[in-house]
Design a protein around this nucleic acid. Structure first.
Lengths: 181, 181
DNA sequence: ACATACATGTAAATAGTTACATGATTTC
DNA sequence: GAAATCATGTAACTATTTACATGTATGT
């Protein structure tokens, strides 16, 4: 799954400009996919070249002209094949967890700061997901599922952070103190 | 955080060869970090060049000779600075969730297959994490925390998969059937 | 005056994976 | 006889991010 596939997918849900596709990834899909302008614009150019999408320019008042992309029938058929053939991969990369492995080497204040930052991060993401699932009316069943998936995961992790942060800090401090005595 | 940092971190826990570092990422840390030989060997060469690690060759019987790397004092100091300065980033990329957004376009059997595959994936990872946390005796408090983090997250998601998979399929089928009648 | 939102696009830099090359030993 | 494990390393390829370039309008 690369940016080409992601763009085709978003366009299968409705017309959009490159800028709007980026916004969708920043908002609705940010918890499980991300991409940048530097990937999106070349992707849309390539999809147009391949005849999988087409576009028309829309001149706006007090806004720059935008290119609105539409998925073609070939694009729809191509995306359908992608859906059936894709080998879904999962990847989670966390610097936070890697750093926590070495918490015993850090000053107490720094461990606290890292734990607080991660807690805030989880809270923020949870807030976004809950807002979308309650406010947005036009979700497909699958989208509602992806939002629930994110909410359930983040809630469980937040609970863990709230229960285990202090005990972890105390445990590391306890292991340190013998040298101080 | 790049492969250089990851290697330094692993070596701060004890001496290891490139091959052993790769194994560590396949086993113990696979739920939140990954890397490949093509990244590890150049990283170790660069760290050696910078004087952050040193190595000695160990000839083995019935096994190829291996280079065992040791973190130097400079390496330890450098890693400590990394721990304090690092801006921890989180990234989760899931093709599974992206595909689920378009479940309404797929045949029922395909949705089922995707959900089953994801469930199996979560079960397998959960099994690995639970085995490590019970069997491994030499874990730092931080490592135990990272394992718990993975376990709690996966358990919550598995429960969701078990509760929501069938309802999701039924809901999508129900939305489809009016056309069939 | 400065930052942000809107809007498109390119190019360089970064980083990583995959495949290849080599070779012994063990297991199925 | 084939595949897996142990062991190191390089090179090509792939993909993505970051920074740059350009310009209007709005908000602080």
């Amino acid at each position: 799954m690369n940016t080409n596939h992601l763009c085709l997918g978003i366009l299968s849900l409705g017309d959009a400009s490159g800028y709007e596709i980026k916004k969708a990834f920043e908002e609705t899909f940010s918890h499980f996919q991300a991409t940048s302008f530097g990937s999106i614009y070349p992707a849309l150019a390539k999809l147009t070249e391949q005849g999988l999408v087409s576009f028309h320019e829309e001149t706006q008042e007090k806004r720059p002209t935008k290119k609105v992309f539409t998925i073609t029938q070939e694009g729809q058929a191509h995306f359908y094949q992608t859906l059936l053939k894709a080998e879904p991969t999962e990847q989670y990369r966390s610097d936070f967890l890697f750093l926590m492995m070495f918490a015993h080497l850090m000053p107490r204040e720094h461990i606290e700061a890292l734990l607080n930052k991660q807690t805030d991060h989880l809270k923020m993401e949870l807030g976004i997901l809950e807002r979308i699932i309650t406010e947005c009316q036009t979700l497909t069943p699958g989208m509602r599922f992806t939002l629930e998936y994110g909410i359930i995961g983040n809630r469980a992790l937040l609970e863990l952070m709230q229960q285990r942060s202090m005990p972890l800090i105390e445990e590391i401090d306890a292991a340190r103190s013998p040298q101080a005595l």
